[in-house]
Nucleic acid binder design. Structure first.
Lengths: 125, 125
DNA sequence: CGGTATCCCAGGCGATACTG
DNA sequence: CAGTATCGCCTGGGATACCG
């Protein structure tokens, strides 16, 4: 039985950087929020839109975003049941803020790829 | 020998969202960039500033950021050797863009925590 | 000081099967 | 349709030891 004396809690001081990272920093969270910008979507619709995501991870991610108040989950008592996911106002402000980052990426993607090539060539010499 | 027929490559179309996420979305990358905003720092200085990061991961992350052209690594031939890390202009524009997200987080942290409490209480009922 | 090399383990994720 | 449950692999990262 190990007692690793209190691993450093990265959330101490309620660090905003950590908070936002925890909402966005996985393979799929951002992609989901982005897809919802156009309006509510159903579970399997999102799943089809985002190729490669598994049912399990989609479910987990949606649940987490619902808990954070970023999206809503609405059940329609049709047969079979229909479930719609939609951005909340809070979630929408987040996607708008994130778009600044996306624009940065579009603008600087080539610079990064070029830097990588330079680095890798220097490394090969 | 399995051949999992081409797992979906999330980078297809050079997706900017994925690109930026790959630079920022680990526990430490953002924290490092943020620490460098005040000027160049040495390896162990960064390590002391960012409590909890291991030598290995710090090294890996710095290497990756250098490769991406976000930071520079300068070796001074002192004894023992001194190494300084500093933001490049590209890296600096990234930190500036990221600050929009940080401000969002500061502004909405309480809303998220409140949403979580609501969700958890409803769940407990 | 500023790393690299090695070992090792937890947990994240995909795959699969099942359900209301 | 919209999930949950279970299993098992794999890899990211901590711990430790060593090096120029």
């Amino acid at each position: 039985m190990t007692m690793p004396e209190q691993p450093y809690n990265v959330y101490e001081d309620r660090c905003p950087t950590r908070l936002v990272l925890d909402r966005l920093a996985d393979k799929w969270a951002l992609l989901i929020l982005d897809r919802l910008r156009g309006g509510p979507l159903r579970f399997n619709h999102i799943r089809r839109e985002i190729k490669g995501i598994s049912q399990k991870v989609l479910s987990q991610t949606l649940r987490k975003q619902e808990r954070d108040g970023l999206i809503t989950r609405t059940i329609f008592p049709t047969v079979p049941v229909t479930v719609e996911y939609a951005l909340t106002p809070l979630g929408r402000t987040l996607t708008e803020t994130v778009s600044a980052l996306t624009h940065w990426a579009e603008k600087n993607m080539d610079a990064i790829l070029a830097a990588q090539r330079t680095y890798d060539e220097r490394d090969a010499s």
